[in-house]
Design a protein around this nucleic acid. Structure first.
Lengths: 248, 248
DNA sequence: CGAGACCGTTGATCCAGGTCAACACGCCGC
DNA sequence: GCGGCGTGTTGACCTGGATCAACGGTCTCG
């Protein structure tokens, strides 16, 4: 801690830490592809952060929609719950990803977003985002891309749920996580699962016992090493072949 | 046919038929909620139509993305195909719905869009849409809502594929179609399925035999009357209860 | 209007994954 | 350090829907 910060420069350390232009995730998040000047315009609208503790919700289905949230740190899940209690995890979300776009259409959130570990999000007031993106062409386009990619991601999940067998689903899940960890500078082959077997199962349309069994099977086959939530991928190609493999 | 159209007024019958402001779907489609003046600005960018014959594709996965498409007439399906040939129908689409948003993120389409019957779409050049929506606040917002609703729709499909049993899936499917037909002024209880059992199965993550069997079962139970592709819903509440019904 | 290709239905059988049950292993607070 | 609870593993068994197979209906196009 600087006892005597140089005047001016250090004045806004807190703000500096808060803005997109100095954020280490800017290459993954909404500012992706924007120029320095454009990111500075983004800075003007993203000035609030929110800390979420593990187990807490960022928003719930039915909550009035007002903002999007960019994940800064922590791991989140989104889910939808039916009246009868069945729930479907619709996604796991990492730093740099945007949450809350489900709320735009109806002014109310359609799903629940939970923190799987303590984390922090940047609050992006949506009306302001629309305002600024009317002026910053690239921001507008970038935001459209983010939404579009969410639609494509969802199609991938449908494919997984609709056509794949249990082993393929798990393999696809692990490879997808691995890829996303790499993009964030983490190891592609060794990571900590923040979610339970039940949550993985819900996401993949499987029961927790099945998830557990297949992890054990993959371990027996030398594809991965599992120790509770700690996963090490030993044979990426082997996992890939599980996906590619088809009788004909 | 007017042999002697009144001068002036009839000059642009073709154009009149082409613009959003005189389109009967404007309450469902992109112009939803826009003022007369705003819709006229939309007219300036939507001036091309494209006819698609049954069985033809509107676009294919990998095609360069340039435009969105608003369905004017006809029934479409979108699907994703894996290298090994398995395919997943990701949606069935009716007049007033927007196709192509999957392409924005990567500049290339991520799925295939096929016409299930002869139809016509309005071509919406995407760069122009972004341009105009930078000027027309409500158009911008409306477009964001359309994308958001697509995301929410996808979450519904995930729920269906991930947590529902075969009968529930079919019941949900029929109720969803019924609802969308009503919104378009058609009968809620009697309609023609444009897709095959196999396509329904693909969408619902079931095999065509299962779809066929459950249709027969629903018929035996007096819930619906099926004759090939012609469906009559006899007991809407009965179908709803299939969804609501849970052991606890 | 007749042949052939789809498309849909139904029956018999099979099996992937669900269900139920027991137990093991952290991890927490006391 | 101990009891209890949430989480994960594994086994035995069951079942919903897949698979395989046969056949009937209907749309299409020459």
């Amino acid at each position: 801690m600087d006892a005597h910060p140089a005047a001016g420069k250090a004045l806004n350390i807190h703000q500096l830490r808060t803005v997109c232009s100095s954020c280490s995730l800017r290459e993954l998040c909404l500012p992706m592809g924007l120029s320095r000047a454009e990111i500075e315009q983004l800075d003007q609208l993203v000035y609030t952060r929110r800390r979420i503790k593990r187990g807490e919700t960022l928003y719930r289905a039915g909550d009035a929609f007002g903002s999007l949230y960019a994940i800064r740190t922590g791991f989140f899940k989104t889910d939808v719950i039916l009246e009868d209690g069945r729930d479907q995890v619709t996604g796991f979300h990492m730093p740099g990803e945007i949450l809350g776009m489900d709320g735009i259409g109806t002014e109310a959130h359609a799903c629940n977003a939970h923190a799987l570990e303590d984390g922090e999000v940047c609050v992006i007031p949506f009306a302001r985002l629309e305002e600024v993106s009317r002026e910053v062409r690239n921001l507008q386009h970038q935001f459209h891309k983010v939404m579009s990619r969410e639609i494509v991601r969802d199609q991938g999940v449908m494919m997984l749920l609709g056509t794949m067998r249990a082993e393929e689903r798990l393999a696809a899940f692990l490879l997808n996580l691995s890829q996303r960890f790499v993009a964030r500078g983490y190891s592609p082959s060794e990571f900590h699962l923040r979610m339970t077997r039940e949550e993985i199962g819900s996401y993949l349309g499987l029961k927790l016992e099945t998830v557990s069994r297949i992890f054990s099977k993959f371990q027996d086959q030398g594809l991965i090493a599992v120790q509770q939530k700690h996963i090490r991928i030993l044979d990426t190609d082997g996992l890939r072949q599980l996906l590619a493999y088809r009788e004909v």
